[in-house]
Computed example of a mutant assay.
Amino acid sequence: MTPKHFVSTLAATELPSVFNPWRDRCAVHDRRDAAAKRRDNLERLLIAALDAKVETIWIARDLGYRGGRRTGVPLTDEVHLDRAGALMGGIALQRATQGPAVAERTAAIVWRVLEQIGQPVMLWNVFPFHPHEAGDPLSNRCHTRGEREATWPLLQALIAMLNPRRIVAIGRDAHLALGDVGIPTTAVRHPSYGGQRDFIEGMFAMYGIDGGALETPRLPLEAPYAAARSCALA
């Protein structure tokens, strides 16, 4: 499967109470061509990953509403979008939303580690979309088994396309879900809910990096969402 075919297949997927950032548009926060920009971001990222012969995929559980839901780049918020492009060889990644850039704490920690490692990796999620509570599109929830099974072929296609040597599962949920992928999988603690230090130390140990002092990353542009939390799909 080519990057273009993969992104097209991803964009064709529609599930209830799920925001597909490569298909859907938030009428409150997104620009008119937001889904197209996010598709372009992901396709550029995949092409760059193939060109760089990326050997590792980091896989978390599912998209959060402040990160990949807005950028189309998993585990990456708008504050770190330019850094994602730089790490992948200087590709141009575009913002798809209006207003101030929004930061996400998990993305801030992930990108602190990536900048120290200095190696391109592919970032992904077991469930590639943003699952939310019914009627509250800007909430977060864990995806269901049925949702995971419905999208599992997409994960298999990504792995087959990139052919990585190693997968890093971010968090217990991701590690349990990835038990059957057939590629060596290493688990690290998810950086949320008090897991920041364990995540950083685990990643640094995996890549042979001296972590030094571990400080909480600052979120310089942690702009709140608009007061109206309704987000219509259009």
Rank of each mutant, 00 (worst) to 15 (best):
G202V: 07
A52D: 05
S139G: 11
L221W: 11
Q196A: 11
T144P: 08
I200G: 02
A96Y: 01
A84V: 02
D210K: 12
L162P: 07
A96N: 04
A205G: 09
K37H: 14
G118M: 11
P184R: 11
A223H: 13
K4H: 14
R83S: 15
L45P: 02
E55T: 08
A36I: 13
G89D: 00
P74K: 01
A49H: 06
A226F: 12
R31P: 07
H80P: 01
A48D: 03
P164T: 05
A84I: 03
E104Y: 07
A169G: 06
L176F: 13
I159F: 10
G182F: 05
G118Y: 09
G68M: 04
A187S: 12
S17L: 04
M203T: 09
T186V: 15
Y65S: 08
G171M: 01
L93H: 02
G212C: 03
M88F: 09
R95P: 05
V110W: 02
D136N: 12
T106C: 06
S192K: 11
L81F: 01
A227G: 13
G179D: 10
Y193T: 12
H29T: 15
G68L: 02
S139L: 06
A213F: 13
V168K: 00
Y193P: 05
A223Q: 06
G135P: 02
R218V: 14
I57V: 14
F129V: 08
Q98L: 14
K37D: 09
E55Q: 12
A232W: 14
L221Q: 13
A169M: 03
G146T: 15
I209W: 03
A101E: 07
I109P: 00
R197P: 07
T216Q: 10
V73I: 12
G118H: 09
T151S: 03
D136Y: 15
A92H: 14
V188A: 03
K37V: 15
R145V: 12
R39C: 04
F127N: 00
I47E: 13
T2K: 04
W111Q: 00
I91S: 01
P217L: 06
A174G: 09
D30F: 01
T186P: 09
V126E: 00
A27C: 10
R95Y: 06
K53N: 13
R31N: 12
R166H: 14
R218D: 13
P153N: 08
A36S: 11
L155N: 09
S17W: 10
P217V: 06
V168N: 00
R112D: 14
A169L: 03
M122P: 02
T97E: 02
D51M: 01
N20Y: 04
T216Y: 10
R229L: 15
H190N: 07
E43W: 03
S17N: 15
V110F: 08
Q98N: 10
L15F: 08
P220H: 04
P16S: 08
M122G: 05
R148T: 12
P217T: 08
A232G: 12
